[in-house]
Design a protein around this nucleic acid. Structure first.
Lengths: 139, 139
DNA sequence: GTGTATGCAAACCCTTTGCAGGCGC
DNA sequence: GCGCCTGCAAAGGGTTTGCATACAC
């Protein structure tokens, strides 16, 4: 996976640098994170400005994309570096669970076709209260 | 609809003021808009700061909610003031189409239940190229 | 060695806040 | 008239940019 990443950079005529490796490594370890987390956790290996530039580059290269989970803007690796999925986000504890559902994907395709859209991407954010938090504070 | 809005404010012990009416009126005319548009278009009747305060209030009262369309953060009236729907956003022209689909809603319910989630809300953003833009620049 | 990428700091948003005056009820 | 709401301006926080230096190739 890291090899694939380096290869993609080189094929685009870009350099494999410390900050880029640092940020990519962090994203691999923490799928679904925030820009501020990346800045905080990668501070030792990458300046704030470099993190922003790196994330912008990764977006352009299709390595990461922005998603919304629990109403908050997050970033994560794209399907090329992680399998296609969506999130169930708990409004109480903030945790997100990953789900994949074929019927859902089919419906989205069908809806796009019906409207004459050529679908490029989609994202879904289901917010609620997770099983654990329901148990903890029942109502 | 506007009567319902005024009623909701009064029932909450809040005042019906110029800025609040101005912003609500704009939201009714332009479903799916941005904070900056509201600020720009309501400038005559509401100061920037008042727009922010008003939007925060509307969010708290469940009059508006934030959604993502075409990857951009937008705001729109909630289901109480407009029927439940989702958006197909064109990445080229930026326009958004509205869709409602029962199968899709059922899928989301089923997925939530399967994971023990009590669903509170969900949002879907389908991005692609609309029929019109496909015709204009075929590939 | 060459040209890209980085770090630093300043500039730039967008958003929030404090406060005195105005207005809905 | 009372107390909430507003406008104004200043402060705050996150993001972007300019420039000289450092490093990947």
């Amino acid at each position: 996976m890291k090899a694939k990443f380096k290869q993609q950079l080189r094929e685009a005529g870009l350099k494999v640098t410390g900050p880029r490796l640092e940020v990519f490594g962090f994203l691999q370890k923490h799928d679904l994170t925030t820009v501020s987390s990346v800045i905080r956790e990668c501070a030792a290996g990458a300046d704030r400005a470099s993190v922003y530039r790196t994330l912008a580059l990764f977006r352009k290269l299709g390595i990461i994309h922005d998603v919304v989970a629990g109403g908050k803007r997050m970033i994560e690796l794209t399907d090329r570096f992680a399998s296609h999925h969506h999130h169930l986000s708990c409004l109480e504890c903030g945790r997100s669970e990953t789900v994949s559902d074929q019927a859902l994907e089919s419906d989205l395709d069908r809806i796009s076709k019906k409207n004459g859209f050529r679908q490029v991407s989609h994202q879904i954010d289901i917010s609620g209260i997770c099983a654990r938090c329901q148990d903890r504070s029942p109502r």
